[in-house]
């Protein structure tokens, strides 16, 4: 009797688990610091809401010497990174990997790419233009931007949370991290991936799909 009861029960339990796991759709975390603020609800009562880190307003010159800003990335998800054209270490690998994602989403207008140069001395827009052409990705989908040292270095460290340093003892003159940052349509950071690591780049590809699906609902 005991056995007769337990088998259907456990089946039922397994089925319930199975169904609930199906409904549980994947969502990406929201990264960066956050704070709780008190807000006034619609009915006049007070409540608490979480304010997430977002990428603030910016404006930089792109490879066509056109001033671009946040509106360029309005209603887009984008992958941002920091590099410089004469970099011989990690940048070629990062951009080789980014290019595979670029090719995959070539036809999808919701996905964009944003590469900031940290070489404010040499990488003027004309240099970026040449670089983009030679990488084979020149076009509005992948923006290569130039800005003053202050503006680029500040947005890198304070907002995209990527470390960049000018270092005269280094052969290339700069040291920086090779993160590819995934930014959602609300300008929040949803993922950080080592652009030189094949496994993490593969994860980024999966996460781009998840993020796109998230916005569909």
């Amino acid at each position: 009797m005991k056995l007769n009861f337990s088998i259907p029960t456990s089946f039922l339990f397994a089925l319930a688990l199975f169904v609930s796991s199906c409904q549980d759709t994947k969502k990406l975390p929201i990264l960066g610091p956050r704070e709780a603020v008190t807000v006034k609800n619609a009915d006049g009562s007070m409540g608490v809401d979480t304010v997430y880190k977002t990428i603030p307003a910016f404006s930089f010159l792109n490879q066509d010497s056109v001033l671009i800003n946040n509106d360029t990335f309005k209603d887009k998800i984008y992958i941002a990174d920091f590099f410089f054209t004469s970099c011989t270490t990690i940048c070629p690998t990062m951009h080789r990997n980014m290019k595979t994602i670029f090719e995959e989403y070539k036809e999808n207008p919701e996905v964009m790419f944003l590469s900031h140069t940290i070489d404010f001395k040499y990488d003027k827009p004309s240099v970026l233009k040449k670089y983009a052409e030679k990488l084979g990705v020149d076009g509005p989908k992948w923006q290569f931007v130039y800005g003053s040292k202050d503006s680029i270095y500040k947005i890198a460290e304070k907002d995209y949370l990527v470390a960049v340093i000018e270092d005269s003892t280094n052969k290339d003159g700069y040291i920086h991290q090779g993160w590819l940052m995934l930014i959602d349509k609300n300008k929040r950071i949803r993922g950080a991936y080592d652009g030189t690591d094949d496994k993490q780049v593969a994860q980024l590809k999966k996460d781009v799909a998840i993020l796109l699906a998230e916005d569909k609902k």
Binding site: P92, H95, R96, K99, Y131, K134, G136
Partner: peptide, 11 residues
């Protein structure tokens, strides 16, 4: 590149 494929017109 891992397969000696180069990188665009850069390498």
């Amino acid at each position: 590149g891992a397969k000696g494929e180069g990188l665009g017109a850069l390498a």
